Simulated assay, not measured.
Amino acid sequence: MKITGYRCLRTFRDWGRPVGDVNGFTDPGISAVPIVVLETDQGIEGIGMGSHHDIDRLFPAIEGEDPRAVTALYDRMLARVFKAGHSGATFGGIGTLDAALWDLKAKLAGEPLWRLLGARDRFVSGYASGLDIALDDDQLATWYRTMGERGFTSGKLKGGRDLDADIRRLGIVADALSGNGVTPAVMLDANESWNLKQAVRYVTAIEEHRDLTWIEEPLRRWDAAGHARLSTAIRAAVATGENLTGLEQFTPLFDRGAVDIVQVGCVWGVTHFLRVAYAAHARDLPISPVGLTANPAVAHAAVAVPNHLSSEVQDLGSPFGVSVDQQFIDGGVVLGDQPGSGITIDEDAIAVNQRSDSWAVSEAPQVRSHRAGLRLVADAPAGTVDR
């Protein structure tokens, strides 16, 4: 069997609510969903979701190869961009092709990916994450109550600019998830918006009112020294890593003891997740993938590693024209038996129903505020310009 070609598709996800974080939000909540379909000489195709970036430059590394050699082909893609480097958006293209390769490998074996990877249980424990910075208190309560009805007992709030509001809203999340007979776990995601001492003061103030399970991305992603100091200064665990593009970027965090919850962005693919998970396991650290909506294949990998803690569940639906063989029940994801990663696409429907997204405009969460970490007052007064 040989890989012969690929097709790039683009659909969209309608979140049904404004979505974002401390850096900004989009309203209406529409985001683009790039899809790559790998073609073979036997007509079997592999599907990956995530990014189209540098696909044309990466594809020669796997063209004509047997798709079952997934991990070797992953390293060939890394080698293909050796001089320019694989960091950043290029790593998204590698991850998407990698997910398509794993989908192909499992389809050829006639098994769901979770089974191929050696998992015994198909249940992926999860936590609710509403991308909720723009939701008012009533909308926040409604969304997390819906997740609580699906059995979720933990939730993550987006925040970091208004201490009093975050304390209040963490309480709303906890109350909304409290109907399952346990005390909910609550987390806060600051999306790299603080410097070290801001983080210490902010989290310490929250902890005077509420137990915080973890603080996520409090500092810049590469600040190993700062994360290590923060972890010793607060009770909450420090969670970070989702934006690191390559196993080697985790090494400084591991060496400094700077991360308590090791996170991996699902968009970076299955092989990356597996390698980081085992590196974390060697250090007795738990792994938590971020954004299963971006790449459902990583859910299959999550149940196959020994140190999976919980996966981020941001939505109960699927992108337009995409169906995924999974269910959201009992506070997590129940994976199906469909061979591969369980993704089916309706290309005809996608072709005639295109929606533009506003994810990368200046007000959206993909664009960092230029004053992040440089504010004496965390939250600017209403009506002022964020300078």
Rank of each mutant, 00 (worst) to 15 (best):
G246H: 14
V173E: 02
L212N: 08
T213A: 13
L131W: 15
V182Q: 11
N191Q: 10
G151M: 14
L113A: 10
P184I: 05
R201G: 07
F152R: 09
K156A: 05
N180K: 06
K197F: 07
R120H: 14
H227Y: 13
I234H: 01
G110E: 13
R169E: 02
A119S: 11
H227I: 13
W194K: 08
M147F: 15
G171H: 05
L247E: 08
T213V: 07
R229N: 02
W214Q: 02
A134S: 11
L117Y: 04
T142V: 08
W222C: 04
L117G: 00
D164C: 03
A141L: 07
A119F: 03
W214I: 02
A141T: 00
S231C: 06
A190R: 10
A228I: 05
Y144V: 02
D136L: 03
T183K: 12
L244P: 08
G148T: 07
A224M: 03
E242G: 03
Q139D: 05
T204V: 01
D137A: 05
R168C: 04
R150S: 09
W194Y: 14
G155E: 01
Y127V: 12
E242M: 01
G151S: 10
R161I: 03
G130R: 13
R145V: 05
S125I: 06
T146G: 11
V124Q: 15
G171M: 06
S129D: 12
R115E: 13
A205W: 09
A134P: 00
A165Q: 14
I206W: 02
A134Q: 11
S129M: 12
E149T: 08
V238T: 10
L247N: 03
A174W: 01
V173C: 00
E216C: 08
E248N: 06
I167L: 03
A185H: 01
R201D: 15
R120G: 09
M147A: 14
G151F: 14
V186P: 01
D189E: 11
L157A: 02
D164Q: 10
T240V: 12
G159L: 13
R122G: 06
R235L: 01
D189L: 09
R210V: 00
G160Q: 15
P112Y: 15
P252F: 08
Q198L: 07
F250Y: 05
P184D: 05
F152M: 05
A174C: 06
A109W: 12
L157H: 04
I234V: 06
A237K: 09
D164H: 07
D162M: 12
R161V: 02
A199Q: 14
T142N: 05
G181A: 10
A185M: 01
R115A: 06
N180I: 06
D189K: 11
L131R: 14
P252Q: 03
W114I: 04
I215H: 10
A176V: 01
A236L: 04
A128T: 04
D136F: 00
P252N: 08
L116E: 10
K158Q: 15
W114A: 02
N195R: 05
T153V: 12
Y127R: 10
D121A: 07
N191I: 08
